[in-house]
């Protein structure tokens, strides 16, 4: 502004410089140059570049989202597979338990049956032995009774000694 102090300093605006029509052609010419330059730079360089950057970013975000979606699906799948494996394993374990129990039951049943049979055989044997003992005891008693009765009959009335009659009487008495 130092130069304005000499001479040029008096050059103040008279009214509105906006209405000084002598400057119009100059301003309009340079404005048009400016607009053409700005339009070409914007439409050829800046705008396509920004558009491509925005599209690229949009694509990148979209692909990331897709990837995330796929990962999520995979995780869900893995969880389902895990759950299925768990259920399978549980069922298998159940089956094994069931089979083992049945096997043991079978063994137990076999052993019980065998033991029962043994017991039955033993008791039958014992019963037979007891019966034999009783029979032999009975026959011994009969014999002793016969002998005793014969002896008594012979002593009391020797004439009436009849072995067969005594025997029949004794056995009738024993049965009664």
């Amino acid at each position: 502004m130092a130069t304005e102090t000499n001479g040029a300093a008096t050059e103040h605006a008279q009214g509105m410089p906006q209405l000084d029509f002598s400057t119009f052609p100059n301003q309009i010419f340079w404005l048009l140059v400016t607009l053409v330059v700005i339009y070409f730079v914007m439409s050829r360089v800046a705008l396509p570049r920004i558009a491509s950057v925005l599209a690229e970013r949009h694509g990148a975000i979209q692909s990331d989202l897709d990837k995330a979606e796929q990962m999520k699906a995979k995780a869900v799948e893995a969880e389902a597979a895990y759950n299925k494996a768990l259920v399978d394993a549980r069922a298998e374990a159940q089956a094994i338990v069931e089979a083992t129990r049945a096997e043991i039951q079978k063994d137990v049943d076999v052993a019980m049956a065998k033991a029962d049979a043994e017991i039955a055989a033993k008791s039958a044997e014992s019963e037979a032995a007891i019966k034999e003992i009783r029979d032999s005891a009975m026959s011994a008693i009969e014999e002793v009774a016969n002998d005793t009765a014969e002896a008594i009959v012979a002593k009391v009335m020797p004439a009436a000694a009849d072995k067969a009659a005594v025997k029949a009487a004794v056995s009738a008495r024993l049965k009664g």
């Binding site: 052609p25 100059n26 010419f29």
Partner: peptide, 29 residues
Amino acid sequence: MDQFLVKPLFGGGHGDIGMFTITNATLWL
């Protein structure tokens, strides 16, 4: 209003302003 004066950029700031004169308007454009 002085700030709105259109002046030639060269030649001491006076003179006629033709269509292609480089002015302060040209500079700021």
